[in-house]
């Protein structure tokens, strides 16, 4: 697959992810403010608010990881690679991408297993919401699996990104591009 089609496939996906993240941040703000207003103004309280906010935060944190990574918001030390010649710098970048990839894949595997083993109980907060909405015949609430699975999902998305980086670095070794060229191109791609 050429780099062109790869990025055109990515664009709608990235837009959807962005929309989802913006919605989560907005939802967090609304829930917290409503909770304050209800409690202080009306002496009432959303019993599920605290728990729902925590779970939204978990999804927010892991879903945004791949985007944070490509925007350079996952801090790393670069002093070694900027001092190196073209090929060694690319080899080093490949090695670091590979190391990160290994960790991601481990976390996808074990994260999934953990979610499966420990995610059997229903989410109490969702149960409260469903009971508020439907009363006694409320449907069964989803399990905490749907919270815990955020970790393997986020790490899986990042793994895809890292595989892309790895391919770019390895290809650049033969094509004559420098690490700087690759970084520049990813940046313009993001700016689009």
């Amino acid at each position: 697959m050429s780099a062109m089609t790869f990025s055109s496939l990515q664009r709608p996906f990235r837009r959807a992810l962005r929309g989802l993240l913006v919605t989560i941040v907005g939802a967090l703000l609304v829930i917290m403010i409503v909770q304050i207003v209800l409690r202080y103004g009306f002496s009432a309280s959303l019993l599920w608010a605290e728990e729902v906010c925590r779970y939204l935060l978990i999804w927010l944190a892991f879903l945004a990881v791949p985007l944070a990574f490509e925007r350079g918001e996952v801090a790393s030390l670069t002093f070694l690679s900027v001092r190196m010649a073209r090929v060694p710098a690319l080899v080093l970048a490949s090695v670091t991408a590979l190391l990160s990839l290994i960790l991601c894949l481990l976390l996808v595997y074990y994260g999934w297993r953990f979610a499966d083993m420990a995610g059997r109980a229903t989410i109490p907060a969702i149960r409260f919401i469903l009971e508020d909405l439907f009363g006694a015949n409320a449907p069964e609430a989803p399990g905490t699996f749907w919270v815990y699975v955020a970790l393997p999902v986020g790490m899986g998305l990042l793994a895809l990104r890292l595989i892309g980086d790895l391919v770019l670095c390895l290809r650049a070794i033969s094509s004559g591009d420098t690490l700087g060229d690759i970084l520049m191109r990813t940046e313009t791609e993001l700016a689009e």
Partner: peptide, 25 residues
């Protein structure tokens, strides 16, 4: 405004008693 442990059983008990149950860390 009474902080309770936010589980279904306690919610039912404290709503029956008449407090305003609050969920809080």
């Amino acid at each position: 405004k009474t902080r309770i442990v936010p589980i279904p059983l306690h919610k039912a008990i404290w709503e029956a008693i008449g407090v305003n149950p609050v969920g809080m860390a």
